[in-house]
């Protein structure tokens, strides 16, 4: 029962993340949305592995830890890229309106 709850909650969080990624204009919000999504993925990975929560699965935990490290690295990198974009265009967004194939 708890498993189902976790999966449902994680799916909800994932959905919120996707929504945020699509809707948000500001790049920081988009990045936050991606981080929210990755959390939900980790929750699901944790839940579906192992045998119903009695004993933890070390491999799954190792995978998730690696995943978190990668997510942190990617986020840090994305923030740096965002700052470069802000410096180059004066705006922290990548709206379509102002790019053409110059």
């Amino acid at each position: 029962m708890t498993e189902v709850m976790f999966v449902l909650a994680a799916s909800l969080v994932f959905g919120i993340g996707v929504w945020g990624l699509l809707i948000a204009e500001h790049l920081l919000r988009k990045l936050l949305a991606l981080n929210v999504m990755s959390s939900s993925v980790f929750i699901i990975m944790l839940v579906v592995s192992g045998d119903g929560g009695t004993s933890p699965d070390p491999v799954a935990q190792a995978l998730i830890l690696t995943g978190i490290v990668i997510a942190v690295a990617a986020t840090a990198f994305a923030l740096a890229l965002m700052i470069s974009i802000y410096r180059a265009t004066g705006r922290p967004s990548i709206s379509e309106s102002d790019d053409d194939d110059r």
């Binding site: 988009k30 991606l34 990755s38 993925v41 699901i44 990975m45 579906v48 890229l81």
Partner: peptide, 25 residues
């Protein structure tokens, strides 16, 4: 680059989720 990164990260998450599901089973 940013557009590529955002879509790339989203894609990676989809892939990772699938890996989790497969490992679980």
């Amino acid at each position: 680059a940013m557009r590529y990164l955002l879509l790339g990260l989203l894609a990676s998450l989809l892939y990772l989720l699938a890996v989790g599901l497969i490992y679980g089973q």
